Amino acid sequence: MTLPSVAAFTDTYFPTVNGVTYTIQAWRDCWRQRDGDMPVVYPGTDEYDPDEREYPVRSVPFPFYEGFRVGVPKVPDGVGDPDLVHAHTPFGLGMSAMRLARSRDLPLVASYHTPTSEYAAYVSLGEHVERTIRRTARRYEHWFFDRADVVVVPSERTREHVRDRIGIEATVEVVPNGIDTERFQPVDPGDFLQRYDLPTDRPIIGYTGRHGYEKCLPDIVAATEDMDVTVVFGGDGPARPDVEARAEAADLDVRFLGFLPREELPAFYSALDVFAFPSPVETQGLVALEANACGTPVAGVDSGALAETIEDGVNGYSYPQGDGEAFRDAIRRALDDRAELSGRCLERRETISIDHAVDRLTDVYQGVLDAEPADVPRNRS
């Protein structure tokens, strides 16, 4: 089967490290392994040298979120003549994707990776302003995504969100992001524990990823404060000072490891007894799946896509959003059932793989290309 050439546009890419960045790179690499072409257009920075078929454009820093940059809309000549266009952002380079699709009458696929409105707290100056920004963000999302031929979301819960909360009428298809199951598998964590001076005589509860306010990370400290455990945080972000302040006030052994190289993450997950995940805004929650692929159960909030990702008694336990006692109980239950849950996590590895995700993505692309013009209203004006 000859794969279509897909031009991918994103405002989130390396050197920024997050789930969106790794998903785009993983899809691109898998596409290439299958002899497909997927050029990636992204915000350029001196800190990252482009790989083959990666095209940086001029970018500007986003003033309210450190480390995030927005690409100045442009379609590099090197992109060539794609068969379809995939926008991984509704902002600067998403507009480039829309422009390319419209100018050449190509199908436009748009991924809904992140609920834009959830970041209102970063730019607001008060409750009234925050509500206004949230409403404006949802209106803009509706405008952009409803002009795509197909909107791709990573979970059923996210499909419900874009349908019910944003009111998107375009076709919405679920394509799980997938994870690299060759990388993420159980490993001996001994060297990792020694390198970071972590204990071997008590359970370890942990989280890694972006430290954003919307992730509710101080809840992890609150839920574990009366437990004889060590809590470890990998990653970084604007909310880290708040998490550190909460940890300093707690009678608890809390460690902050900072940014962890990707090659260390399998050992990090394998070192944990439970991965704690209180974020209610996930569209899928890749770090939870990475932990599961390494045999580590998750104690997470029953909200957003995590309500779908976490199956109680199978790969972890969930709790109602805002219920600190229930979060504590979910962690304790996951600790008690750790061995049984770990085995079940490993049994499900193939269903969360990148290959499985790209199989589904291929079907979506082919469906758009095969659709008659009457079936797919191309690039709504």
Rank of each mutant, 00 (worst) to 15 (best):
G94T: 02
A170I: 05
L93W: 02
A137S: 13
D83N: 06
V20C: 09
A110D: 00
P373A: 10
A299Y: 09
F62H: 09
V20D: 10
V358H: 09
S111D: 09
A371P: 08
E264G: 07
Y119L: 13
A87E: 12
F327R: 00
A26R: 15
G44C: 13
S117Y: 12
V153L: 00
D312E: 15
G212H: 03
D226A: 12
P373Y: 03
R53M: 07
N292A: 14
Y269M: 07
D105M: 03
A110E: 00
D253H: 07
R210I: 06
P261H: 11
P115W: 03
G92Y: 07
Q25P: 04
D146L: 03
D149T: 10
A8C: 05
R134N: 05
A249Q: 11
F144C: 09
P50E: 05
E52L: 09
D323Q: 06
Y269W: 07
D236H: 13
H161K: 03
Q185R: 14
D164M: 02
P15L: 02
E66G: 08
H86W: 02
P115V: 03
E225Q: 12
T16R: 14
S5A: 13
R69E: 15
L125M: 12
L272W: 11
L369S: 01
R360F: 08
G167H: 08
P107E: 06
S5T: 15
P261C: 10
I204W: 05
P373H: 04
T10F: 05
M1R: 08
T114C: 03
G300N: 11
A267C: 00
V243L: 07
A276Y: 00
E372N: 11
T230R: 10
G80E: 14
D188A: 04
V20E: 12
T230M: 06
H161N: 04
G295K: 03
G343D: 15
A121S: 13
E225F: 03
V20S: 11
V129M: 12
D242W: 01
L84Y: 02
A288E: 00
S342M: 06
V364K: 07
Y55A: 04
H88C: 07
G367T: 05
V151E: 01
P241N: 09
Y196G: 03
V85K: 11
A374R: 13
D180G: 11
E225G: 01
I204V: 13
D37N: 14
V364A: 08
P15A: 10
F14A: 15
F9R: 12
V57I: 06
T132H: 13
E214K: 15
R380A: 15
P261N: 08
A249Y: 03
H356V: 04
C345F: 11
T21F: 07
F275G: 05
R380Q: 13
G237E: 09
R131K: 13
R332N: 07
Y207H: 14
S111V: 06
P39Q: 02
G295E: 10
P73K: 01
P4W: 09
D242P: 01
P73Y: 11
I352T: 01
D226Q: 14
F259L: 13
R157E: 15
A276H: 01
P199M: 02
R240G: 05
G285L: 00
H211M: 12
F277R: 05
A247C: 08
T362K: 11
I331A: 02
L108P: 12
R53A: 15
A291S: 15
R202L: 08
T21N: 08
